[in-house]
Computed example of a mutant assay.
Amino acid sequence: APGIVFYRLVNTLDAMWGYRTERYCHFGWAAAKLDDGLNYLPARCTALSYAVLSDATNALRCWKTQAAAHASPNGGPVIAAGAGGLGVLLGGPTRYQGVWQDKPYLGTGSLPKVDDLQRAMRLVSLSLL
């Protein structure tokens, strides 16, 4: 139970102050790095499960070649492997607080369509099992 509380605390601190603002620069940086460390193995287990349960060759290739392009050290492997395994592109230009930011595309193929949502939900469900 103490480990669960600690993990939840770190995750919440990262969500609240993990972004680099002048006011929370040092505290937010520490919370973000601690959260990254705690999620290192779970993120890679998730990416590996996505690969095993989908197009493994494409998922592993995307993970290896694209994950580092993502700003998050843990989000990159998961998104790249999932998108590669499903054969879709995720990411690209994104709006944050009204400002467009150029984000990398991860995966292969075309942008997702409505039908791809069901496949993605199935992949997540199978991974959870």
Rank of each mutant, 00 (worst) to 15 (best):
Val10Leu: 03
Leu123Arg: 09
Asp55Phe: 02
Arg20Met: 11
Leu117Asp: 06
Arg122Phe: 06
Arg95Asp: 05
Ser54His: 07
Gly28Val: 00
Trp17Arg: 10
Val124Trp: 11
Val114Thr: 13
Arg122Met: 04
Pro104Tyr: 03
Leu89Cys: 06
Ser49Arg: 15
Gly98Arg: 05
Leu90Cys: 01
Leu48Thr: 10
Met16Phe: 11
Gly75Cys: 07
Ala43Ser: 15
Arg119Asn: 13
Gly28Ile: 08
Gln97Gly: 05
Arg122Trp: 08
Ser49Pro: 07
Ala67Leu: 01
Gly82Ile: 02
Gln66Asn: 05
Leu9Trp: 09
Glu22Trp: 07
Tyr40Ile: 08
Ala59Gly: 11
Tyr40Leu: 11
Pro112Trp: 00
Leu126Thr: 13
Gln118Glu: 14
Leu111Arg: 14
Lys113Val: 00
Lys64Pro: 08
Gly107Glu: 00
Arg61Glu: 10
Ala32Val: 02
Leu9Asp: 06
Asn74Gln: 02
His70Val: 03
Pro93Ala: 13
Lys103Val: 01
Gln101Cys: 02
Asn58Val: 13
Ala30Glu: 03
Ser110Lys: 14
Ala30Arg: 12
Asp116Tyr: 01
Ala47Phe: 07
Trp29Ala: 13
Met16Trp: 11
Gly87Val: 05
Thr108Ser: 14
Ser72Glu: 00
Gly82Glu: 06
Trp29Tyr: 14
Pro73Ile: 06
Cys25His: 15
Trp29Pro: 05
Gly28Thr: 00
Gly109Arg: 10
Met16Leu: 15
Ala69Lys: 10
Met121Ile: 04
Leu53Asp: 02
Tyr105Ser: 08
Ile79Pro: 04
